[in-house]
Design a protein around this nucleic acid. Structure first.
Length: 453
RNA sequence: GGAGAGGUGGCGGAGUGGUCGAUCGCGCCGGUCUCGAAAACCGGAGUGGGUUCACGCCCACCGUGGGUUCGAAUCCCACCCUCUCCGCCA
């Protein structure tokens, strides 16, 4: 098992081959208003792509016209040949047959040219990120994100709070040495009380989403085919971030992949929407490119647990669903009494597929910083176009692309860190949030010796 | 791992070389009938692309990619996927 080689990833898009009109960006929209397209991308720091797109598109259409005209002529000749044969006119049949044979080579060349132009345009469009919504603030990097909400007050410690891996009561339950022996760096072995709290957190999250937020609990594979990774745009651009098995499966970096792709290729009746799911899974990330970052502790691991939320809805309701999903994630932190802030990412800091993203950052006293614990994005129809996921409007009519949203609710490991750091006491014990007590059968703290009590 | 079956329109399911983009059933939309509905009857409707002011016309699509042929859903080759049985196994 290793990171994919580029050759491996270069294959076709599985069974769900997007057409030009649905290659993440609608070519007609660009044709109709190239200035608006450029203006949106300029906010992401990309310059004047529409000219390049339109030149390619025009060339492509010219080639298609030539190829299709020639094909139509051949089809007509073939049909006439059949008719001639039918009425026993051998001379006419032979003449038409020869005519078709002559055209064949030219048609093949024209068709190949048209297909090449079509592919070139698709490749170009595939590499262009989603367009930010108007409500997204402009900015070039994370320093220009905008805080929109803040909850809770960081606790006033009368001692210097430690990072999670230095807390006395945590040390026996968080074994990096053994993990290194088994698997290398960026892994952890959890033991005893810490494991129990970790498990309790995941249960609390799932129960809250199911009971309070009406999300449908969903359990999925963590090994997926290429096409699922294309659907949620881990492929083809970000192959080096994920792991692949020897027989070609990918280990999901997030359950967003499976939950979102569950509707790939479908035409859903509008009455079924919105579909709101929550799933708890292992996640696997190579963390290529983050070497040196967060190397100590379990903040950034190759394998971690996350409860993921995914919503499939109509484009018209996507923004309202985005706010709803953000609240679902915030509710977990509030139940746990963990101070956090919500920020809206600026245009320069958003992920490739997002139209708008809210990040939740939880207060980590050991670092004296707010750190990301959830990222909630609406992708509009961007992923739906790749997956060919559509809905049929109420009352009939042409199918339209659904909107897809995803968000962490929450990263379990990071949430564990937050609980441990925020609840730590001067003596090395950890006071646990009341919301967890039922899941711990009444236990309320981790002692300085590392046991539940 | 071994053996077999199969991939066709929203769904089910026909179709083995020539008006097949595709019979039929269900479901869907419109209409007749009805106070209204059901039933019955009549009619309509695939997806994507190109072209046109428009009506329309053209091209592609029966898992994917090649091949044979004047002509392929139908024949040949390769690949992918699904299912069934056997074996192994949590």
């Amino acid at each position: 098992m290793n990171c994919a080689s580029p050759a491996r990833v270069d294959r076709a898009y599985g069974g769900i081959d997007p057409q030009i009109g649905s290659a993440m960006h609608d070519i007609r929209t660009i044709r109709e208003n190239p200035a608006a397209f450029d203006a949106s991308l300029a906010r992401r720091g990309l310059q004047g792509l529409s000219a390049q797109v339109l030149v390619l598109d025009e060339d492509r259409r010219g080639k298609i016209l030539a190829a299709e005209t020639a094909t139509a002529e051949q089809n007509r000749a073939s049909k006439e040949a059949g008719a001639a044969k039918g009425r026993g006119d051998e001379i006419e049949f032979e003449r038409l047959r020869a005519e078709v044979a002559v055209k064949k080579a030219a048609i093949q060349r024209l068709t190949e040219e048209a297909a090449a132009q079509d592919q070139a345009l698709r490749d170009l469009l595939m590499g262009i990120p989603n367009l930010p919504l108007d409500a997204v603030p402009d900015g070039k990097d994370e320093t220009q994100n905008v805080e929109i909400h803040r909850w809770g007050t960081p606790r006033d410690f009368d001692f210097t709070p430690k990072e999670h891996f230095d807390i006395a009561g945590v040390i026996p339950g968080m074994d990096f040495a053994t993990a290194a022996k088994l698997s290398g760096s960026r892994f952890v072995v959890l033991k005893g009380a810490v494991t129990r709290v970790h498990r309790a957190l995941a249960q609390l999250m799932l129960d809250t989403h199911v009971e309070d937020h009406a999300l449908t609990e969903t359990w999925t594979p963590v090994l997926v085919k290429d096409e699922a990774m294309y659907g949620t745009n881990q492929l083809p651009k970000f192959a080096e971030d994920s792991y692949q098995t020897t027989n070609g499966w990918w280990l999901i970096p997030t359950a967003e992949v499976t939950l979102t792709n569950s509707v790939a290729g479908e035409i859903l009746d509008e009455v079924l929407l919105p579909i709101r799911m929550a799933g708890h899974s292992q996640c696997f990330r190579s963390e290529a490119g983050s070497s040196g970052k967060d190397t100590t502790g379990m903040l950034r691991q190759h394998q971690f647990e996350k409860v993921e939320m995914v919503t499939i809805c109509t484009p018209q309701t996507a923004l309202a669903e985005h706010d709803r999903m953000t609240k679902c994630a915030e509710a977990i932190l509030e139940k746990l009494g963990l101070p956090y802030r919500t920020i809206v990412l600026c245009t320069g800091d958003m992920g490739f597929g997002a139209q708008k993203t809210h990040d939740l950052e939880v207060w980590l006293p050991g670092q004296q910083k707010y750190r990301e614990i959830s990222s909630v994005s609406t992708c509009g129809s961007f992923q739906a176009r790749r997956m060919n996921a559509r809905f049929r409007p109420n009352g009939g009519g042409k199918p339209d692309y659904v909107a897809t949203l995803n968000g962490s609710g929450l990263a379990v490991g990071r949430c564990l860190i937050a609980v441990l750091e925020n609840g730590q006491e001067a003596d090395g014990s950890v006071t646990l949030p009341a919301a967890l007590h039922p899941y711990l059968h009444g236990k309320t703290k981790i002692t300085a010796e590392g046991t539940l009590s």
